[in-house]
Simulated scan of single mutants.
Amino acid sequence: MDWKESCRSRLREHLDAQGDLAPPWERFPDYERHTIGWRMGAGEDWMGLWSVFLDQLAPDPEARITYLRRHPPAPISWADAVHAVLCPTGRGDDDDDEDGDDDDPTAAAQRRAALLEQGLIASDVSYSIWLGQQKDLSWPWDHHETPESAARYNTREFWFWSRRAAELRRGGAWTPPGVPETWRACAHALESGDAGPVDPREGLLSLARMFCAGQVKAPWQLGLKLTDFADSFDDDMGYVDAFRLWGMSAFDDASHLRRYLEATRAPPAWEAWVAEQLPFD
């Protein structure tokens, strides 16, 4: 039995009460659009199931838009996949994974604008999808022995957790437990909402402390310079590199990123760096 046939044989067990398979952005909101997670493990399996489901879905636009409206809007970064759902003619097995880099930029922008107007895609929507799936508040040390590990390997979900924790803190419903010894460096940030001084050499730990405080400060807010960027993804990366790692995980669209840059008053030189490191169509 080949992989696609395996997906067909297992599809029914994953359908909801309406006979739908949840779109990938709903099933895994903590996965970025182009993460390798879609090409291995549970993410790859879900993409295979979704491809089979779409093959069986009625091809007329009304049926497909009705399917999409039964589910949360997709992040803007998924606009190409949403368009492929609505216009299935010629869709190959792997089209949902394609970046659309060869597409005409003007046509792609027009499609995004139309999908936004229809409410089928939206800015910064993954967090609300993720939040709606949460029950009790878990703690990052339940899944990662150290804050550096959580910031490095679970950046997006750690950030979503940070946003939720910040909302609870603002609402007065915040009673964090004691932290394990390996998380002691984050205890004050978790309790007070203040990340404290940042060591630019300890990028991942500094990022984790900011997550625990509920706010990520930009390098330019900390007085760091463009020369502090080492273009590194190593575990000993500095703060500017850790900030880039966060940006790659936190932002699904240019509008959301623009709001952050405006709120933090990014200088022109840093804006140019962000545009290069975190490109959006």
Rank of each mutant, 00 (worst) to 15 (best):
P197W: 05
F243K: 02
M40V: 12
D93M: 13
G90C: 09
G19N: 06
S138C: 02
R209G: 00
S9L: 09
A269K: 09
A269G: 15
E157S: 07
M40H: 07
P177N: 02
D16Y: 14
A151Y: 01
T106F: 08
L115N: 07
G119F: 12
A213T: 05
D235N: 13
Y239V: 00
M47G: 09
R112N: 05
E202D: 06
G247E: 14
G193P: 07
D101H: 12
C212Y: 06
A42D: 05
A272F: 14
A250E: 04
A113Y: 14
E148N: 10
L116W: 03
L49A: 13
H143P: 12
W50K: 03
G48T: 01
A151V: 12
I129C: 03
F280Q: 10
D281A: 11
M210P: 07
A195R: 06
H34N: 04
R265G: 13
L21D: 04
S123I: 06
P268D: 02
D102E: 13
R152F: 08
Q118T: 05
P75Y: 01
E181N: 09
W161M: 08
A79D: 08
F280I: 03
A195M: 10
P24G: 11
D101I: 15
R169A: 11
P200N: 00
T182L: 00
M1T: 10
P267A: 04
L137T: 10
P180C: 10
C212E: 14
F160A: 04
W38N: 08
R201F: 13
E167R: 05
Q134Y: 06
D236N: 13
K225Y: 10
D231L: 06
R12P: 12
A242V: 14
V198T: 11
V240R: 01
L68V: 00
L131M: 15
R258I: 00
A266K: 09
P176L: 09
R156Q: 10
Q221V: 07
A185H: 00
R70L: 07
V240S: 00
M210L: 05
Y153N: 09
W246I: 15
A122W: 03
W25P: 02
A166M: 10
D253W: 03
S128E: 14
K135Q: 05
P180G: 10
H256T: 01
D20T: 06
R33M: 12
P88E: 06
R27C: 11
D124T: 08
D236K: 15
A266N: 06
R164E: 08
V240M: 01
Y239G: 03
G247Y: 04
K4L: 04
G92E: 11
V82S: 13
T155A: 07
S126N: 09
R27M: 12
Q18F: 05
D241G: 05
F158Q: 08
I129E: 02
D228L: 11
L116N: 01
L131E: 15
E32N: 02
V85C: 02
W139M: 08
Y127K: 02
E145F: 10
W174P: 03
P268L: 00
R33V: 08
Q133R: 13
D45A: 15
G178T: 07
P267E: 02
F211G: 01
F28T: 13
L205F: 04
E44I: 05
D228F: 11
K4H: 09
L54K: 11
D124A: 15
V198A: 01
Q133W: 06
R209S: 01
P279E: 15
D96H: 13
S123R: 00
P219S: 00
A150K: 02
D60M: 08
